[in-house]
Design a protein around this nucleic acid. Structure first.
Lengths: 124, 124, 124, 124
DNA sequence: GTGGTCTAGACCACT
DNA sequence: GTGGTCTAGACCACG
């Protein structure tokens, strides 16, 4: 009843969309699997069904999910899309982080160093 | 005369604020240095003075800049704040990226591998 | 229609902010209760909506109120914050007054005496 | 060389004025005593002479200090003014604090209790 | 000239 | 309808 957790700085439908992308890319929702109905999903997330519908339509636009008339929404079986998704997400995160760090004046080597330092500090 | 460039997905005053933080953290604006006046800054960035004032007041709240009445705004001389800033920014970027990648199911080792791969792909 | 009353020596948004804090701390606005919309509030106080928004954003920064996207602003349900608020306000007033009186050369005993004298003078 | 300390939320000349009032009311500057020159005072406080002059003119307006042409500024010898000053300052502080506490819903008895509690907490 | 505040009015995304 | 953001323009205290 408590729903998913959102931060108020970004639109909720974007955050929902991201979460579902994550679930698909990590296989929590497998290729061809039927997704919960909009109402169920909305209930689980604790949001207005309109908001959930908007999030799902974003994913449909990306080709990640498909709607079968009067049956429901399914994860696409287009393996190309699914295979590309995870790699694309990873590259997005990396390129964003790297450009920010370069903005702060770090070279490629320093970035790699910083990552190792960070990992060590946290793991100790 | 064409001002700084902003992306429309986030508030302009946040982006201005970030840019100035970057300039301070990289030493473009040194400790104790007088900043351009709000009006000048607004002109340079191509925004309304109110918007610039809002961005600067954020930085003042963070203790990064101080206001001398009727004289102007200055980068803080509190070296502790300044020394911590760059490291904090770097860690923010890293921790954010790492948590997103872990969310996508990558282990620490895989993250480091991905970074190396990414760097190699781009540098070739 | 005549709005709240403000003294011109301090920013209006501060005075608004204080008034609302007072209302929350005294239970006029209860925990979890929906606040009037920014526009309503502005009308009631007789100020520009922007000014009211600024006052409210101060309270949000303090964690006293939270914003639900496209729904409105609510008094926080964080009882810890709310329970601490009144006591903190009282202590602020007391410590400020005491430090000023000590500045004027009064000892703790003299301060208590002065308070009793003051109360008696006024109540007679 | 470091001057007096001011908080940036209120005009500096007001804060200077308050400090000098405090010094007079506590006898640091006695009745009829010659005050430092504006320049000396400004140097000591670390402010612009204009600012110090403005602060002193406030005190002259209140009748607390008098200017002897070509000689300097002196604390008034009007004992009535001086005797009334301290009491007035004390009453100002008290009435301000009391009205704020009543605003928060405390009765006179509760205010006195709160003061005792506060004094005890801090003295333990 | 400096920053701070306030108003007026507009547009926008979100739910 | 809700809050958030931005612009434009004005006035003011301060130093």
């Amino acid at each position: 009843m408590q729903g998913w957790t959102f931060d108020s700085s970004r639109p909720i439908y974007i955050q929902i969309s991201n979460e579902i992308v994550r679930r698909i890319s990590t296989g929590i929702y497998a290729a061809g699997e039927k997704l919960p109905s909009v109402r169920e999903f909305a209930l689980e997330a604790g949001v207005n069904p309109n908001t959930m519908a908007r999030a799902l339509s974003e994913l449909e636009r990306l080709g990640l999910i498909v709607t079968e008339r009067a049956s429901g929404k399914y994860v696409t079986t287009n393996t190309e899309v699914l295979l590309g998704l995870r790699k694309e997400l990873i590259n997005q995160v990396l390129s964003h982080a790297i450009s920010e760090l370069e903005n702060l004046g770090l070279s490629r080597e320093q970035i790699i160093d910083a990552l190792h330092n960070y990992a060590n500090e946290r793991s100790v």
